[in-house]
């Protein structure tokens, strides 16, 4: 069960958001969950994202820390391989297929907060 709260203080973390991600590069990724790791100090969603050219690229999505997510209602069973999700987040500055998740839209349409450090 994932909490549906949308009025949440931005969850922060143990490192600087600005050093890793770019607020000027918002991104929406729709794809299939490969792996959901609810680990410290941040959770990571691995997902396959089909491109317009038909090729699939794999992205790593950083979420808030697992304790913060747990207090929002997330569990390690909130996502599973094969789930279709949409992630709204921010791209990493280093140009890799890495992003920070602000919100995750589940297959049933529920939007859940997954923010990490400084997520607006």
């Amino acid at each position: 069960m994932v909490a549906l709260s949308s009025n949440v203080t931005p969850a922060a973390a143990h490192h600087s958001f600005a050093a890793e991600f770019d607020f000027q590069k918002p991104v929406t990724l729709k794809g299939i969950v490969v792996r959901w790791e609810m680990i410290n100090p941040h959770g990571w969603i691995t997902m396959d994202v089909p491109g317009e050219d038909g090729k699939t690229s794999q992205w790593m999505i950083e979420t808030s820390n697992p304790n913060g997510l747990m207090r929002l209602g997330w569990t390690k069973r909130s996502l599973k391989a094969g789930d279709e999700i949409t992630v709204d987040g921010y791209k990493a500055k280093d140009g890799s297929n890495t992003a920070n998740a602000a919100r995750v839209t589940l297959a049933d349409g529920r939007k859940v907060f997954a923010g990490s450090a400084g997520t607006p």
């Binding site: 143990h14 490192h15 050093a19 890793e20 790791e37 680990i39 410290n40 100090p41 941040h42 990571w44 790593m60 950083e62 990493a92 500055k93 280093d94 890799s96 890495t98």
Partner: peptide, 12 residues
């Protein structure tokens, strides 16, 4: 904390 630190490698 050390369980899955994967962020520092992305600091530009």
């Amino acid at each position: 904390c050390l369980e899955g630190e994967r962020s520092l490698q992305h600091f530009t």
